[in-house]
Simulated assay, not measured.
Amino acid sequence: MELKTIRYELTDGIATVTLSRPKRRNAWTGRMHTEYRWVLAEADKDPAVRVIVVTGDPEGQAFCAGADMAALEGHSEKGRYDSGTTADIAKPGFGVAPEFDATFAYHFGLTKPVIAAINGAAAGVGLVLATFADLRFCAAGVKFTAAHGRFNFPAEFGLSWVLPRIVGLTHANDILLSSRVFTAEEAMEMGFLNKLLPPEGLMPHVMDYARKLADGVSPGSLRETKKQIYTDLHRDAAGAVTAAERLLEEMIKHPDYKEGVKAWMEKRRAEWQG
Rank of each mutant, 00 (worst) to 15 (best):
D232Q: 10
W38T: 15
A240T: 08
A90Y: 12
V206F: 08
F151H: 15
L19M: 14
L72H: 10
T86N: 07
P154N: 05
R136P: 00
R246S: 01
A140V: 01
P92E: 01
G220M: 07
E2Y: 09
F104P: 06
S76F: 10
P58W: 03
F94E: 07
A48D: 12
S83N: 15
A172F: 09
L129F: 01
K267H: 07
A27D: 08
S218N: 06
K212Q: 15
K112F: 01
Y36S: 09
I229W: 11
G74I: 08
G60R: 04
F182D: 05
Y257M: 14
Q228N: 12
L248G: 14
A210L: 08
Q61G: 03
A15C: 11
V142T: 11
T11H: 09
R211K: 06
P47D: 00
Y257Q: 14
Y8K: 09
L213N: 10
S20I: 14
W264S: 03
F153S: 12
I14A: 03
P113H: 02
N173A: 10
G239I: 08
I118G: 13
A237I: 13
T145N: 05
E156Q: 14
E249M: 13
L193R: 04
W38H: 11
L202G: 06
K258C: 01
A65M: 01
G109L: 08
L197R: 05
A140F: 08
T18Y: 11
G95P: 07
K23H: 12
A210K: 05
G126Q: 00
G66F: 02
L110D: 03
Y36I: 10
I229N: 06
N119D: 12
H75A: 14
E189N: 04
A147F: 07
V53M: 02
A97W: 06
R235E: 00
A155Y: 09
G74E: 15
T183D: 04
T18D: 13
I229G: 00
G239V: 06
M188W: 15
L3P: 02
G141M: 00
G109Y: 14
V17W: 07
G201Y: 07
F192N: 02
S221Q: 14
T55K: 12
T18G: 10
E77L: 13
T111W: 01
A122M: 14
G126Y: 00
C64R: 02
T183P: 00
P58I: 05
L202N: 04
A244F: 01
A116T: 09
H75C: 14
N119R: 05
D232I: 00
A130T: 02
F94T: 11
I52A: 04
V51I: 11
L196Y: 12
G191R: 11
R37Q: 09
A70N: 07
L110I: 04
L202S: 06
K267G: 03
P58F: 02
A97L: 10
E186F: 04
E249N: 14
F104A: 13
L110Q: 07
M207F: 15
